[in-house]
Simulated scan of single mutants.
Amino acid sequence: MSQATPSHTPSTTPTIALPAAREADHPIDPQFLNRWSPRAFTGESLDTATLLRFLEAARWAPSGYNVQPWRFVYALAGTPAWATLFETLSVTNQSWAHRASALVLVVSQQRWLPPGKSALEPNATHAFDTGAAWSHLALQASLSGWHAHSIGGFDRALARSSLDIPEDYTPQVIVALGRRGDKAVLPEALQAREQPNTRLPLSAIAAEGRFPFD
């Protein structure tokens, strides 16, 4: 039996210490604590093969009925496609994302063709499934020594028109990918936020038998 190819390659980029520690309430693999979404990037070039590796991980996300509603439109920094995606970002997000190595627009198809049917029907879980694909992308990037930051602040109407996205598809987020850099490259207002976030305790989001949450 052949052995699987290793899933990631260690980064050769100098390590920048994290400003805050994360702790899990229960034992989990460190990859889930190590992954976070910085804004400070180095501007280092990202080659197409590496980017496609991240998207390959996204391709294998779980999907109801194996519909796979996710779609990705990507652009590497310095290529003609870059400006089209970059211009859809809000001014605030442009102020840091210009140092990213790649941008990826994540889109989900709203409808699907159920077995035995002849017409498309609404897919209630298209956004849910596509979120799982984004998570796979982000984890593979982190395991490979890169970082991914999903951006909700962009002009969806402009993205739709600029990229010829059909009405049946929903632009969800734009993902900025890059190597983590020094926070000093960020606008002053963003520097204080350049650290891994914590999470609500598990007891605040998970309960047995009923919904007791506010």
Rank of each mutant, 00 (worst) to 15 (best):
G152Y: 08
A176M: 05
G178M: 00
L158K: 15
I174D: 11
D164K: 11
L163N: 13
Q172S: 04
A184M: 03
R160G: 11
D164V: 01
H149M: 08
T170N: 09
L177H: 13
F154Y: 12
A189H: 07
D164H: 13
L186H: 10
G181D: 01
K183Y: 00
I174Q: 10
S144M: 07
W146C: 07
T170E: 13
L190D: 13
G178Y: 01
A184T: 12
S161M: 06
E188N: 08
H149G: 01
W146N: 06
D168Q: 13
D182G: 12
S161E: 10
V175N: 08
E167T: 12
R160W: 05
D155L: 00
K183D: 08
W146D: 05
P171H: 09
A157G: 14
L186P: 12
V185Y: 00
R160A: 13
E167G: 14
I174Y: 08
V175S: 03
V173H: 12
S144Q: 09
R180N: 09
L158R: 15
H149F: 06
L190Y: 15
A189D: 04
A159M: 03
A159F: 10
L190W: 09
L158H: 10
Q172R: 08
R180P: 12
L190F: 15
P187Y: 02
R160C: 12
G152E: 04
R180D: 06
G181L: 02
A184W: 00
D164M: 02
E188F: 00
L177W: 09
A184Y: 00
S161K: 11
L163P: 11
E188R: 09
S162Y: 00
P187V: 00
R180L: 10
H149A: 07
A176Q: 08
S162E: 09
A148K: 01
D155Y: 03
G181Q: 02
G178T: 06
A148P: 01
L158C: 07
P171T: 03
L177G: 05
A192P: 00
R180S: 08
D168I: 14
A184E: 08
S144A: 11
Y169P: 05
D168L: 14
V185Q: 03
D164E: 12
G178N: 05
L163S: 12
Q191L: 04
T170Y: 10
E167K: 13
L186K: 09
F154W: 10
G153P: 01
G181N: 09
R156K: 15
A184D: 08
D182K: 04
A176D: 09
I165T: 04
A157I: 01
Q172W: 02
V185M: 02
E167H: 14
D155Q: 00
H149T: 09
V175D: 05
G145P: 09
A184S: 15
Q172D: 13
E167A: 15
P187C: 06
A157N: 14
A189V: 02
Y169A: 14
R156F: 01
P166V: 11
L177N: 06
R179T: 08
L158Y: 10
R179C: 13
A184H: 05
R180W: 06
S162R: 15
A157P: 01
L163Q: 10
I174R: 11
Q191F: 05
R179M: 06
L190M: 13
R156V: 00
D168M: 10
G178I: 00
H147A: 15
D155E: 01
R180C: 06
R156S: 06
A189M: 07
D164Y: 03
D155S: 02
R156D: 02
L177S: 03
A192I: 07
G152L: 07
